[in-house]
Design a protein around this nucleic acid. Structure first.
Length: 399
DNA sequence: AACCCGGGGGT
DNA sequence: ACCCCAGGGTT
């Protein structure tokens, strides 16, 4: 094993000094105020890929709204998604509620305290199961996240690529061997706390680090170079045309939104209607405004909404880890006048005649999405990804 | 073990 | 522009 080079003394020193440092340095975080397994579970799900400072206000609102596992299990999914709005990775919210229902049905409303049952909860993987078992139940399970891999790779001078599965297994074994008897919860949190406060990705604060004198990475001058991490694939660009349709008549003052499908990217979130601009970047991305709006109008017509183009509104971007959306937003006005309807029908006909329709936009028959006309106030009840909140807020504040 | 999925904020 | 954040799930 890689860590066989590390002396027993070095490991004992590490665990002892780290724990001692944590006692006086630990932050006062909302989920640390009680040892409530539900709070710890919720916090660990929110903390997946998300910084502590971002999570704190979300955690407090979430616990106020869903104080118990039962309350969460019985809540409308819409409310749970709304409370997650802006945090990202929305499947975490849907999985968390599904898992709360699992806990109600299979475990009498009590977060299970064994690895098999905790790991079976939706959205709970190796890291989160270890975190729950150690922090909530003080069981000697490792909780290896990005912080822990950074700290361990530096202290023990581990050069393996942390993106590889085998490296995480190695880290889990090492982390387990470091847990002081009876102190699993504090020790795991201490590791992560050190990574968050001292052993940071860039410019680590080695001079105030409680374990500096035996840190192999520091002694080798390698702390800035570690951990070794292979680069991820760059996100692929996608170009999308977005419609902001202002309502007319009975819908005056409202904007058209739709709900995304039950599965896949941003599942069940609300958004402005949009269509792919082109298969090839450059072709449709540079489409002149007129043809772009014609294509959007035709797609809206396919969804049963007659709308006349007003003009370009703004551009927006949205980055996922694997996709980068380049969005051009166009303003439309709901058309119920005959003249406008004729114009829409004409552009739709031209669009279909060009044969551009089938591949890039839903036809009337298969666009089963749910559409709604909303006011700015209605945004308070529906969960939108941030990019659409930005667009909607810009629009509503401009009129 | 490799690969895919997936939002946002800090610097 | 780049980094990376208290990862999970599927194949």
């Amino acid at each position: 094993m890689q860590d066989s080079k590390a002396s027993k003394e070095s490991k004992q020193y590490f665990s002892r000094e780290l724990l001692s440092w944590y006692e006086q340095a630990k932050r006062d975080l909302p989920w640390r105020r009680h040892r409530n397994p539900y709070y710890i579970w919720v916090s660990e799900i929110m903390l997946q890929q998300t910084r502590v400072d971002t999570v704190i206000p979300y955690f407090q609102r979430f616990i106020e709204r869903f104080p118990t596992i039962q309350a969460l299990a019985e809540a409308p999914e819409e409310d749970v998604l709304k409370s997650w709005e802006g945090l990202g990775y929305y499947s975490r919210a849907r999985n968390l509620q599904a898992a709360a229902q699992q806990v109600m049905e299979r475990h009498g409303g009590i977060v299970p305290d064994n690895k098999k049952d905790v790991s079976a909860l939706k959205g709970v993987g190796p890291y989160t199961s270890g975190a729950i078992l150690s922090i909530a139940y003080n069981q000697p399970e490792p909780a290896v996240d990005g912080n822990v891999m950074r700290v361990l790779s530096r202290y023990f001078l581990i050069e393996e690529d942390i993106m590889k599965t085998g490296t995480r297994t190695l880290m889990e074994e090492l982390a387990t061997s470091l847990i002081p008897p009876g102190r699993a919860g504090d020790f795991n949190q201490a590791l992560m706390e050190l990574g968050a406060l001292i052993c940071t990705p860039k410019s680590p604060q080695c001079l105030i680090c409680p374990v500096m004198v035996h840190c192999s990475g520091r002694l080798e001058g390698a702390e800035e170079r570690l951990p070794v991490k292979s680069k991820a694939k760059p996100p692929r660009p996608e170009y999308r045309l977005v419609a902001l349709v202002e309502g007319d008549g009975a819908q005056a003052g409202r904007v058209l939104v739709r709900r995304r499908p039950d599965t896949g990217l941003l599942a069940r979130m609300w958004e402005l209607p949009h269509i792919p601009a082109a298969a090839e970047p450059g072709e449709g991305a540079g489409l002149p405004d007129g043809p772009a709006m014609d294509r959007l109008a035709a797609a809206l017509g396919g969804a049963g909404v007659m709308a006349a183009p007003v003009g370009a509104l703004m551009e927006a971007e949205h980055t996922f880890s694997h996709i980068h959306w380049n969005m051009r937003v166009f303003r439309f006005h709901q058309a119920d006048g005959l003249g406008e309807l004729a114009a829409v029908a004409e552009s739709a006909a031209a669009y279909e005649a060009n044969g551009a329709g089938g591949a890039v936009s839903p036809s009337a028959s298969d666009d089963s999405a749910e559409y709604r006309w909303i006011t700015q106030d209605d945004m308070g009840e529906l969960a939108f990804p941030n990019v659409f909140i930005r667009i909607l807020n810009r629009y509503f504040s401009s009129i």
